[in-house]
Amino acid sequence: MIAIIKYNAGNIKSVQNALTRLGYESEITDDQMAINTADKVIFPGVGEASTAMRYLREKGLDKVISDVTQPFLGICLGLQLMCESSEEGHTDCLGIFDTKVKLFPPEDKVPHMGWNSFNTLKGPLFKEVKKQDNVYYVHSYYAEKCKDTVASCNYVKPFSAALQKDNFYATQFHPEKSAGVGAQILRNFLQL
C-alpha cells in the first residue's frame, strides 16, 4: 500500500489516479499508523506554503513526516515544504533538505508553467530518463540548488528540479502530469 498524505492541498487525486494507472493501490490518509506502515509515502501538494505548514503542525504531521523511514516522495509544494524555509508566507519548513525556497524574480513570466527539460540529473529516480526529456512544472517559488540536488532545471536561474537525502526524494515538477516520462519517474520511485 502506498500512503498519500492528506492535508489541505490540492492535486492529491491526480497522484492517486497516476498510481492507479501504474497498477498500484494507494490510500489518501493523515493517520499516523497508516503512514508508518505504508510501503511508500507520497507527499503531494499544490497550495500556499505558510498555510500548509500551519496545517501540518496543527495535525502533528510535521513530526510524522520527519520520522518516516520508508521511501518518501514530495511533489511540488511537497518538495518546498521539505526545505528549510520558504519566502511564500515567510515560513519555516520541515528542514529535511538543506536549502531555502525563494520567489522567482520577475525577469520572465511567473509562474514557471509548462514543460521543461533538465540541466543535470542523477540517481535512482531518473533511471532511463534523459536530460532532454520534458516534465511539467507550475510554480512561482523554487528551491535553490544545494548538495541534496539530484536534478536541476533552468528558468530565469538554475534551481532544484529534484532533491534527495537518504530515503527522502522530492520533485518540483509534477510526475503525475508529465505523460510517459513522469510515469517512468513514478515507477522508479515505486520500485525503490
Binding site: 489516479n17 492507479t20 494507472r21 511539467y136 502530469k177 510517459g180 510515469a183
Partner: peptide, 8 residues
Amino acid sequence: IAREINIP
C-alpha cells in the same frame, strides 16, 4: 478524464 489523462 482525470483517470485517463496523464497531462494537465
